[in-house]
């Protein structure tokens, strides 16, 4: 499987490590209401869809960047690859 890194181009998936559902980027605020329930959801509950899924991949044997890969888990087709740092900064700026 090849992952089209936004900065480095097509790279073999053997250079990456799969780090789970991209919902891990959205850590709940510990001060918020029901934070305990939200952290249980954040830590343990996953949708695990058969279809389009946003995933975190770490380019360990590369530039050490974190990517959000939108992948179809049924066909393995990669639909989109984005740098997690940019997505997070964009979300924080809102």
């Amino acid at each position: 499987m090849l992952i089209d890194h936004p900065l480095l181009g097509l790279r073999d998936s053997s250079e990456f490590i799969y780090m789970g559902d991209a919902k891990l980027l959205n850590r709940p605020n510990w001060k918020s209401k029901n934070s305990k329930t939200k952290f249980i959801d954040y830590g343990y509950l996953r949708k695990n869809p058969a279809g389009v899924h946003k995933e975190l991949w770490y380019h360990e044997q590369g530039d050490r960047s974190w990517l959000v890969v939108t992948r179809n888990t049924v066909t393995h087709e990669i639909l989109k690859v984005e740098l997690a740092r940019y997505l997070k900064r964009k979300a924080n700026a809102k």
Partner: peptide
């Protein structure tokens, strides 16, 4: 090495971090 080493993609002076066998 899993990289595309053709001169068009990996030109003189280019550098990449990758794996060879299982090694960084």
């Amino acid at each position: 090495c899993p990289l595309n080493l053709s001169l068009k993609i990996f030109a003189i002076g280019n550098v990449k971090r990758t794996v060879m066998d299982h090694l960084n």
